[in-house]
Amino acid sequence: MPFDLKELSKEKDLFAPGHRACAGCGPAIVMRQIMAVAGKDTVVGFATGCMEVVSTIFPYTAWRVPYIHVAFENAAAVISGVEAAYKALKRKGKINKKINFIAIAGDGGTYDIGIQALSGALERGHNFLYVCYDNQAYMNTGIQRSGATPLGAHTTTSPAGDVIPGKVQWRKDLTEIVAAHGIPYAAQASPSHWNDLMEKVKKALETEGPAFINVLAPCPVGWYFSPERTIKIAKLAVDTLFWPLYEVENGKHRITYKPRKPKPVEEWLKEQGRFRHLFQEKNRWIIEEFQRQVNERWERLLRLEEASL
């Protein structure tokens, strides 16, 4: 049953306007889409990052649900504590209603500095959803490379120079790392496919135990594209198979959207200034390597899906 935008738009946005995200901000779209499903009985625990900074500049907050930010690397630990308190207080009869607990962090706070706290919280089995808005670099501090930055991308700490052509490593496959914890639900989503994303959020929140969603969140400033292209670029990431939409439910992989005719990854790369240098003749090999990696990972995903049947 698809989500009805007519119904969703009747509710007050739980991520209010007046936040200071850049025009065309992908992560801000992700926040709205998540919160439209989560509803008001939700506590959000946030990691330091661009969305934290733009949404809560004292005395203004964009949040219409209870929100707590503590530091960069500990969103999963903080939400563990909130959830533990909820359980304890519920047991003592001090609170009754059902509350969703969502930790939100960028790729810096998830792939890199926060991976330990995330792994711990997943292993302990807290009842929460962790959402990573993956804009593929440390955007808050000004576009530094992260474990999520793709091969070849120019960032301010993996600059495309005369000798080194941007980031020379492939990105971590965090969704699979998380899924390997054996948690009940892990998924990958994109705001371009909003209904798919919302269904995943709904499923994740209905899951008993830890759930994780890795959401691609294009950043016009950090990826160097014009702000109206955010959704197009998210969609291209899916259609080129760079960012497959899939879920891992109780260990079973299921691809939730299969592009009928996948596009070459070059079409996604050429839209973004951070990959511009790859189109120089001497760097073309990186695009080929990129395509090879995308193909290999997609085929692996297909095999995982097949094995799950």
């Binding site: 500049i57 004292f58 209870p66 930010h69």
Partner: peptide, 8 residues
């Protein structure tokens, strides 16, 4: 709903 830990 309150916001805890804003940017100050």
């Amino acid at each position: 709903p309150i916001t805890v830990g804003p940017l100050d």
